[in-house]
Amino acid sequence: MSPETRDAVFGGESLARIAALAEVDTDVLVTDFGAPDPVLRRMLAEAEVLVTGWGCPPLDRAALRRMPRLEAVVHAAGSVKHHITGACWERDIQVSTAAAANALPVAEYTVAAILFANKRVLEGAHAYRRSRQRVNLLDGFPTVGNFRRTVGLVGASRIGRRVIELLRPFDVRILVHDPYLSARDARELGVEQSGLDSLVSRSDVVSLHAPELPATRRMFDAARLSLMPDGATLINTARGSLVDTDALTKEVRTGRLHAVLDHTEPEVLPADSPLFDLPNVLLTPHLAGSIGGELHRLADSAADELERYTQGLTFRHRVDPDALHHSA
């Protein structure tokens, strides 16, 4: 992993716990599996488990040849697609991810965004700031609130399912579109399955939790955005590529739709993008995922998985290579 990742994610307590579970030098970081350093080459040759994070280089065949004893990779972050290659699965290397831990703050952000969107908090704050006096709520906000609102979730992912769980205390109807969600799972989750266009046209808030795949690229284009009811809100904490940025910009500039965007395409918008200044758009800098103290949850997850490995148990959050084609 990168030095920045180690310093941000792994505090002294988690490093001490890992050191108690395995023979490890917690000061050694690998940022290049091909580095000529003889000490590093010797350590890689002896490695049985790698603890990885953001900034890990690809574990391709050349890298794996330097690690003949490698049995497992414990990833202290979400997606493993950036560094786990087909060569890992050919070697039958076990891979664990902390995606479940990283899903928690994203789901919390999403639920806050849903509740604030239906309550029109951002719009109300702007109105109050402009007037600097009492706002006539009955006239200005006659239809706000979360009571009996419809929330549409695109993707029953780890994050999507956590959002469903966190929304249970609220009087909202939840629609879900996910081609991999079974009718039985939908019943157990207490949600209504829906086709995507039907979900979009019936929801007061649409929240995206689908992975970045060729099939999901710009799934929210001009035609699909036009199906959203007037005054509806689009929330994107997934990937910017799921939304046609130009099409969304045109919609929100009219004031017809609202948006909460933690991901955009490009990831950093041009400085002159209207999305920065529109009163009906909340734009955040990839803030929903684990940051600050939340990062230590990822370290705890990695340590938990390493402990299971030392006990001969299977990983609790083992990555299934057959599921990677439809997951993040």
Score class of each variant (00 low, 15 high):
residue 63 A to P: 09
residue 188 E to T: 08
residue 98 A to M: 07
residue 165 E to S: 14
residue 117 A to G: 09
residue 232 A to C: 08
residue 269 L to D: 13
residue 328 A to S: 12
residue 23 E to K: 10
residue 176 V to D: 03
residue 196 L to R: 12
residue 311 Q to T: 00
residue 263 H to E: 13
residue 46 E to H: 08
residue 140 G to R: 14
residue 163 V to S: 04
residue 174 I to C: 11
residue 309 Y to K: 13
residue 133 Q to G: 00
residue 156 A to C: 10
residue 257 L to V: 10
residue 152 G to I: 05
residue 45 A to H: 12
residue 38 P to H: 04
residue 243 V to S: 04
residue 325 H to W: 09
residue 81 K to R: 14
residue 189 L to C: 08
residue 222 A to C: 11
residue 217 R to N: 07
residue 48 E to S: 06
residue 6 R to F: 01
residue 62 A to M: 02
residue 37 D to N: 14
residue 250 K to F: 00
residue 312 G to R: 03
residue 43 M to S: 08
residue 93 I to N: 13
residue 15 L to N: 05
residue 225 L to C: 10
residue 325 H to S: 15
residue 300 D to C: 06
residue 212 E to R: 15
residue 211 P to D: 12
residue 171 D to Y: 02
residue 144 V to S: 10
residue 114 I to Q: 01
residue 223 A to L: 07
residue 192 E to I: 13
residue 320 D to W: 04
residue 166 L to Y: 11
residue 181 L to C: 07
residue 7 D to K: 05
residue 45 A to P: 01
residue 203 S to L: 07
residue 95 V to R: 09
residue 310 T to F: 01
residue 143 T to I: 09
residue 250 K to Q: 15
residue 57 P to F: 03
residue 58 P to S: 09
residue 81 K to P: 08
residue 237 T to M: 05
residue 66 R to V: 04
residue 88 C to G: 09
residue 137 L to H: 04
residue 149 R to E: 12
residue 92 D to K: 14
residue 216 T to Y: 06
residue 268 V to E: 05
residue 7 D to E: 15
residue 321 P to W: 05
residue 182 S to E: 08
residue 7 D to Y: 01
residue 16 A to W: 08
residue 274 P to L: 12
residue 249 T to N: 09
residue 117 A to H: 03
residue 93 I to F: 11
residue 150 T to I: 14
residue 79 S to T: 15
residue 35 A to V: 07
residue 217 R to A: 13
residue 161 R to M: 10
residue 19 A to D: 11
residue 268 V to R: 14
residue 310 T to G: 05
residue 244 D to Q: 13
residue 94 Q to V: 10
residue 91 R to K: 11
residue 160 G to A: 00
residue 253 R to F: 00
residue 173 R to D: 12
residue 135 V to M: 02
residue 19 A to I: 00
residue 99 A to Y: 06
residue 160 G to P: 02
residue 77 A to P: 08
residue 116 F to W: 01
residue 18 I to E: 13
residue 230 D to I: 09
residue 10 F to K: 09
residue 325 H to F: 04
residue 8 A to P: 00
residue 164 I to F: 09
residue 203 S to E: 09
residue 224 R to D: 11
residue 307 E to V: 01
residue 67 M to G: 10
residue 271 A to T: 10
residue 146 N to R: 03
residue 19 A to R: 11
residue 18 I to F: 05
residue 32 D to K: 09
residue 51 V to N: 05
residue 325 H to Q: 07
residue 77 A to W: 12
residue 253 R to D: 06
residue 2 S to W: 10
residue 79 S to D: 05
residue 323 A to Q: 12
residue 102 N to G: 02
residue 131 S to C: 00
residue 1 M to P: 14
residue 139 D to G: 15
residue 108 E to Q: 02
residue 272 D to L: 06
residue 130 R to E: 15
residue 248 L to M: 09
residue 127 A to T: 14
residue 142 P to N: 03
residue 136 N to Y: 07
residue 187 R to D: 13
residue 69 R to G: 08
residue 328 A to R: 06
residue 197 D to G: 02
residue 86 G to Q: 08
residue 163 V to N: 04
residue 129 R to P: 00
residue 217 R to H: 13
residue 260 V to R: 03
residue 179 P to T: 01
residue 122 L to P: 00
residue 15 L to Q: 15
residue 229 P to H: 10
residue 66 R to W: 00
residue 220 F to M: 15
residue 184 R to T: 12
residue 48 E to C: 05
residue 282 L to T: 14
residue 54 W to F: 13
residue 140 G to W: 01
residue 55 G to A: 10
residue 269 L to F: 06
residue 103 A to H: 01
